[in-house]
């Protein structure tokens, strides 16, 4: 049995996750999303990635970005480093795709701020 802290919402439920008869069972969650998180965390933990990329010709020097979905936790540092090589130019609109399908994960990296 493994224990995880659910990070889906601020309630931060403590989940006990176990595998029985090829089925992952989650206890301690208070909502459905918690169960999904528990199963994922047991099989293949995933996280959102938020960081910045360099932006030119703007008042601020870094453009904040986010992943459109969660990516494998084990690849967080590697993909963050990948993003550090990127420079974008203005204008950027919130939601603009900065990297398509980053590291073949099927997840895009998008801008979270409009900078004109």
């Amino acid at each position: 049995m493994k224990k995880f802290t659910c990070i889906v919402c601020p309630v931060s439920c403590i989940l006990s996750v176990d595998e029985k008869d090829n089925e992952v069972q989650v206890n301690g969650n208070q909502c459905k999303r918690g169960r999904v998180f528990g199963v994922n965390e047991y099989n293949d933990p995933k996280r959102m990635i938020t960081t910045t990329v360099k932006i030119e010709n703007a008042k601020i020097k870094r453009l904040p970005v986010i992943s459109t979905d969660e990516i494998p936790k084990s690849r967080l540092i590697e993909l963050a480093k990948e993003l550090y090589k990127i420079t974008v130019d203005t204008p950027v609109l919130r939601g603009d795709i900065i990297v398509k399908n980053i590291g073949e994960t099927g997840v895009d990296i998008i801008a979270t701020r409009t900078i004109i």
Binding site: F4, I7, I14
Partner: peptide
């Protein structure tokens, strides 16, 4: 801080 932040910011 919130427990989930201990998990995703420190433990991870």
């Amino acid at each position: 801080g919130l427990t989930r932040n201990i998990a995703q910011c420190l433990v991870d």
